[in-house]
Each structure stands twice: as C-alpha cells, then as structure tokens.
Design a protein around this nucleic acid. Sequence first.
DNA 1: AGTATACCCGACTATTTGTACAGGTACAAT
DNA 2: ATTGTACCTGTACAAATAGTCGGGTATACT
Lengths: 212, 212
Amino acid sequence: MKKDITERQKQLLGIIYDYFQGSGYPPTFEEMREELKVASNQSVVDLLKKLVENGYIKRSEAAARGLTLLPLGYEALGRQPMAPFMGVAAGGPPIQALAITGEWQTLPGGLAKLKDEVFVLRISGDSMINAGIDDGDQVLVQTQKYFVSGDIVFAQVDDETTVKRFMSTDQPPYLFLKPENPKYQNILFKDNIELKGKVISVSKSGQWLPIK
Amino acid sequence: MKKDITERQKQLLGIIYDYFQGSGYPPTFEEMREELKVASNQSVVDLLKKLVENGYIKRSEAAARGLTLLPLGYEALGRQPMAPFMGVAAGGPPIQALAITGEWQTLPGGLAKLKDEVFVLRISGDSMINAGIDDGDQVLVQTQKYFVSGDIVFAQVDDETTVKRFMSTDQPPYLFLKPENPKYQNILFKDNIELKGKVISVSKSGQWLPIK
DNA sequence: AGTATACCCGACTATTTGTACAGGTACAAT
DNA sequence: ATTGTACCTGTACAAATAGTCGGGTATACT
C-alpha cells in the first residue's frame, strides 16, 4: 500500500534538502520543527516516519542528524541527484589518459561532497559505435571489482584509459577487451589491464539511456 | 604562522571524509575518537582545533556533527572537490535546450549531495570560438545574479539555453549577447533573456583553463 | 456511526554529544 | 635548561538532541 507523498511531507523533504545544501549536514528535529512552523516535535517524528516508510529518506537510529535523502526523495522534489564529472576518456584506441583535473582549488564558494562510486566520462573516439557509444557521448561509470563477460567496462591499459567490451571465453584468448567497431583489434589481457568500472548508462545530447 | 598539516591531522581529515562518504553526514567526536584509536575525546578536540585554525575544516559551534570540509581540506587529502555535471548547452545558435536529465532514478547506491552554485556544461556549436570555447568543450558555470559587461554568461533565451558574451553599453542597443564568431548575430535583450550564470573556466580534453 | 489516516499539541524523559578541567609524555627549537 | 607544540589520558558535566506518553482535530472512506 504505497502512498503518494503529501504536500506536508514534501515540504519537510525540501527543508531537509535545503538545510543540507546550506550547511553540509542534515538538520535536527528542532530545526525541522522550526521550519515547519509547528509547536511539537512529535509532528516531525510523524512526518519523518512516513518519509522513511515510503522510501524517501533513510534514518540512522540513535544518531543526531542521522538523515539521508534517497533517490526517491530527490525525485519527489524534482531535483536530480547527479554524478560527479571526472574528465575525458578515450573510446577509440587507448590514446588518452583519464584526466582528472587538478585545477579545482580555485573554485569559488563551498563545494560539494560526492560519492566515489559513480562518475561521468566523456568519450572520444569511435571504437564503440556498434554499442551505441559515439564520439563525444557521456557515459556513466559505476566502479566495481567484478565483471561478467559482455559488460562494457572502463579500463586502464598501461598508462591510458579506455572504454571497451569485456569478454571472457573458455577458449583462447580467454580474456580480452573488444572494441565495438570492426576497424579496431581486440586487446588481449596481459598484466597491463585493470578494470575500473562498468558503464551503465550513456548520454547523447543530454538524454541518458541504459546500456545494452 | 601557518603550519603544514601533520600526519595525525591528515588522518582525522580522512576519517571525516570517509565517514561522510559512507553515511551522508559528519561523524561525532566519539566516532572520530574510535577511528583514531585513542582513549580520550580530548585528543579529537585538540586535533579538530588545529584543523579549524589552519582552514581545513569549518565547525558549527554548539551543534552535533557540525563539521564541513573546506576546499583546503580536500586539497590536503589529495581529493578534488568537483562540480556536478548538468548536461549540454548550445554554444552555437541557441538551438538546444539545457537538458537536465531525468533518468537518474536508476542510479545505483547512495548519491551525493551537491551545491547548486557551480556546475559543468558541455558546449555544442561554434559561436564562441574567438573566446576560446569550441564545440565539445566543457565549461564551468557559476550561478550568480549580477553581471558586468564582457562576462561570458550562460543564458536562457526563450526556451533555449546558450553561452554568449554579455555586453552592456551606453548607446543603443544598450544590452545584448554577443557571439564570439562573426558568422553569428548579436542577440538583443527583450524580455526573453535571463542570465543564469557566469562562465568561469573552460576545459579542453580535461585541462581546465581560466576564462579571459 | 465507525474506522483509518494525516497532522498536530504539550510535557516529559532518555540518550547522545560536546565541552571543560587537570593534567602527562615526547620532541624540537631557542 | 626552558619553552612551545603535538598529541595523549581520564573524569565529570552541561548542552543538544532524539524519543515517548497521552492525548486532539479534521477529513475521507465504508
């Protein structure tokens, strides 16, 4: 019996979000009570309980300010949880190092915390066009350690990074990276390849699509 | 008398960062004490005081978990505070709407909070090539309300977004947006233009450069 | 009329969390 | 030799914060 979010619950969600944006950590019950313009923190308790039940937020028991917005919460607010942008990876022959820029110290204002598990890369090159990944596309990468044959992976080959399809077979060459473009050759595993993450989504002109 | 960060202070900084990544909010003194493997939380007090003095973190007095990592803190850890990636903007004729994607619900894992004040866009089009902004470049945009003549701005024109140089003169046409490419015409202000932010940096293949 | 739900009040208690005090050790610089 | 600093111990206490009890009102549905 999943309920739609009510107006009041949405308000509280917004209060939590805004507080977080402003301070860098979640609000207390008292602060939420204040913002909601109610007299008793029992109201906050009730509303939070609903938000938890319906999957909008997560609470850590017995902890001050133990609130986390879940993806559903962002969605209900109409805000998008977003991935950090990390740089540019080559999707063609592995020619271009992953450039995590070092010039951010000069960024103005307070800056966001972020998760390391997921990030966005821009692809250059045409080696994956048959998988629907074209030059200039953005891809969303989830870092993980274990992969299955057929996954499109973000890999480091020697000193360079690239995006290719990971293949594992029971015949030679057993393990290799496969470009999705007949122009290019498979890359065989020696000890020079490290898989960094799995490509889970691709963006073309701002539209994000699942990877097949 | 600015001191370099000590090894122990850096450890604590890392503990705070990691805890934040894991839970979405800062740790308590007790939790930090635990991680530092010390018996008294006075040690935490001392170390935090040093971190505040030297500008690595900010504390909110009289508040549980009132910790915020400052840019200097990220720098000391060797992590880069990064800007959220928002989508694609046209740098040519204003043909392409800013696409803030709506497909993130499926993102795995907990997601980062972020500041709204700064974000990254990808440029498509050639209307700003004389300002050093080319098709496919990324630009870093800081949202702000007030602009001076000559600023390169991220603007909404009718229902579309674009990046152009903002010009303000004491002669007609007074206010207009100027493409940095003779192929294109100035865009005059009617009531259809809203300036969203200022472009403060441009990235070419991962190298971030200041905007002139 | 009865039941359920969303939302609220007020007072109180329990627990978590930060702060203060009174030191101690090791080390480097003056 | 003395001073300062980084880091630590241990205890006690005050403040911040979450949780609980026992209700109330309005609205919608059966």
